[in-house]
């Protein structure tokens, strides 16, 4: 069996489990969790396409998450477009925006790339805040995303939204997995590990870099669309720079070298938040403490740690 077929099989099983879960035990909280997880995990995994797979550290990736949320909510509120065209148009618009932003940014290296992406996100955020007639300013796009039922699917209904999110999460992750495993992914890794050598081998650097930047932005926007559906609107917080931080922290907590690291990190981050905000008013204190323990105790993401631990264990038993 090829790895692709094997992973495709696993993806199908996971999807079946997720879709079948509500039949076994009905927990709206679990469904909410998966909806939020799918938004954050797609977003964080898309960031890892840049950070982990290509070595491009972006501090401003959240702008595409926010862009996706706003573009989708605006298309649904302002036009009569049906769900699917609005969704596809959102991804297309994001790709266009990413092409522009990426075209400007990718020639910068290392930390300067990180800074310029952050600066552009700040500008984007301040445009959202100031352009009140379009975006509602700081109050966001309120009043809900209109219900447009297609083929019996009402996306404002929690169970239906859950099913859509589960599907997009699995398909999105599988697609990203496929991208990193492809020859294109190999090229990116080569650039990440040794840019000079890749250039020497005659690989034009900017093309794959720009391509992965646009791809990552589209997957981030996918997460943003799900987030906007969950809150039934779009709010500036979805585009502010702490949201970029969320993705970075999810990637770091879960593991930068493991493909599923960002997914694991997102789950941990959300669970930490959900549990501690419920238990205590001082959730920041506890959450910060736990994150410190993770960071200082493992010094890498959880999945990376587990993999190395296993590798060491196997080496020792041999």
């Amino acid at each position: 069996m090829t790895p692709l077929a094997r992973e495709g099989g696993i993806a199908l099983i996971v999807l079946a489990l997720l879709l079948g879960a509500p039949a076994l035990f009905s927990s709206p909280a679990f469904e909410d969790f998966i909806i939020r997880l799918s938004a954050l995990a797609l977003f964080a995994s898309s960031l890892n396409l840049l950070v982990g797979a290509s070595g491009m550290i972006s501090f401003g990736h959240g702008m595409f998450y926010g862009f996706g949320a706003y573009a989708f909510a605006l298309l649904m509120q302002r036009t009569a477009l049906s769900l699917l065209p609005a969704f596809l148009l959102t991804l297309g618009l994001t790709a266009l925006a990413a092409l522009l932003v990426g075209g400007v940014c990718i020639r910068l290296k290392t930390i300067y790339f990180a800074f310029v992406t952050l600066a552009i996100q700040m500008l984007f955020y301040s445009v959202i805040i100031s352009w009140e007639s379009l975006t509602g300013g700081d109050q966001g796009l309120r009043g809900g995303i209109p219900r447009r039922v297609i083929a019996g699917l009402d996306i404002n209904h929690q169970r239906h939204l859950y099913q859509v999110c589960a599907l997009l999460l699995v398909v999105g992750l599988f697609a990203m997995r496929h991208i990193t495993a492809s020859p294109f992914g190999m090229t990116l890794r080569m650039i990440r590990d040794n840019e000079a050598r890749a250039a020497f081998l005659g690989i034009p650097l900017w093309r794959p870099k720009l391509a992965v930047f646009v791809l990552a932005a589209v997957f981030a926007a996918l997460g943003g669309v799900l987030a906007s559906l969950f809150v039934s609107g779009a709010y500036p917080e979805l585009a502010d720079w702490p949201i970029s931080g969320q993705a970075i922290f999810a990637v770091m907590l879960g593991g930068i070298e493991s493909f599923l690291g960002p997914l694991a990190g997102s789950a941990i981050l959300l669970a930490l938040n959900d549990i501690f905000t419920r238990i205590t008013e001082y959730h920041g204190l506890v959450q910060g403490g736990v994150i410190l323990l993770f960071a200082l105790g493992l010094r890498r993401g959880v999945l990376d740690f587990l993999r190395r631990d296993r590798a060491r264990g196997e080496a020792a038993s041999r």
Partner: peptide
């Protein structure tokens, strides 16, 4: 010597902790 983003994660934790303290 680790990933620069690990330092960022630590800073984030410290900000959370001290805002609450």
């Amino acid at each position: 010597g680790g990933n620069v983003l690990m330092q960022l994660l630590i800073c984030y934790a410290v900000v959370l902790i001290f805002d609450d303290l």
